[in-house]
């Protein structure tokens, strides 16, 4: 901007950007190309060759017929498992986190800082330190490997960052909002519902993106807490590629399944643009 950069410097700059862009773009392109091939071509020909007769057959097989363990009905069922887990976890987390954020930001509660601190410290503890007791607790309640269990752990581990995002947003709102509501005789939940909630759309989108990508992309929690009947897509895709190598490897189907798993967060990323960037950076802003 300041000094006029030389032509060579400019050229080097764009060369650097293009080479790195290729490094980032190529793996996904290769996955896509492989998914368009038939199984012989995917097995024998170089991954960089374009498919001879590209079609979406591998996607159909992955969706409806691919074998996970002994069951050969594709990953479509797991896709809907993931959808249900993600929708439930995200809506419960957002509701709880926004109420928390509102209570912590605007009501000057005694020990409010302590509650937030307890929540945030927990966010830095690796899951591995907590999973086994959680399994025992769910087993005691007869809920081991149920939909309830997987949704509760997702809410539990999502709450710190989501609460922080809502709190940081509400701290910036004028306190007069509450005072006005109080004068009119409104209670906590009325002020939340009719004054605060309608102003929260933007921050809810950011928090929602974090929650959806986090829950959808999770593997460990799904593996341990969801069980076979609620197995999410990430878990089945990971084991799908393991089983396919036992017989004739069908790399094209594996790659199609991989791509189908990647698609929802990828579309969310492309559609939401700036919100996504705010989402991933908001974790970085100091609370």
């Amino acid at each position: 901007m300041s000094t006029r950069p030389s032509m060579i410097g400019r050229f080097g700059l764009y060369a650097f950007l293009l080479v790195t862009a290729a490094f980032f773009a190529i793996p996904l392109l290769i996955v896509f190309l492989t998914a368009l091939k038939d199984s012989d071509e995917a097995r024998a020909a170089s991954i960089f060759l374009l498919p001879g007769s590209p079609d979406f057959e591998a996607f159909r097989v992955a969706w409806l017929e691919a074998c996970i363990g002994r069951e050969c009905s594709g990953i479509s069922g797991r896709f809907w498992n993931s959808v249900i887990i993600t929708v439930l976890s995200t809506s419960i987390s957002l509701l709880l986190a926004s109420i928390n954020g509102f209570a912590l930001a605007m009501w000057d509660l005694r020990r409010g800082g302590l509650v937030l601190g307890l929540l945030l410290i927990g966010a830095f503890v690796p899951y591995q330190v907590m999973i086994y007791p959680l399994v025992r607790i769910f087993a005691l309640g007869g809920m081991h490997q149920t939909l309830t269990a997987i949704v509760v752990v997702h809410v539990l581990f999502g709450l710190p960052i989501l609460t922080l995002i809502f709190r940081n947003f509400y701290v910036g709102l004028p306190p007069e909002l509450i005072k006005a509501g109080r004068v009119d005789g409104a209670g906590f939940f009325q002020i939340y519902r009719f004054i605060v909630m309608p102003m929260s759309l933007n921050v809810a989108i950011v928090a929602g993106i974090i929650s959806v990508t986090g829950v959808w992309n999770d593997y460990l929690l799904g593996l341990i807490f969801a069980g076979p009947s609620w197995q999410p897509m990430t878990v089945s895709v990971a084991s799908l590629s393991a089983t396919a190598s036992s017989g004739v490897p069908e790399h094209n189907v594996n790659m199609a399944a991989t791509l189908l798993t990647a698609l929802p967060p990828l579309l969310l990323y492309l559609v939401s643009g700036r919100y996504f960037v705010r989402g991933v950076t908001s974790g970085a802003v100091k609370g």
Partner: peptide
């Protein structure tokens, strides 16, 4: 957009793609 998109993907997808590469 190109540099950031892998962040949207899971480590499962990342691992499967690179194992294939």
């Amino acid at each position: 957009t190109i540099f950031l998109y892998p962040v949207a993907l899971s480590f499962i997808v990342t691992g499967l793609a690179w194992r294939w590469l």
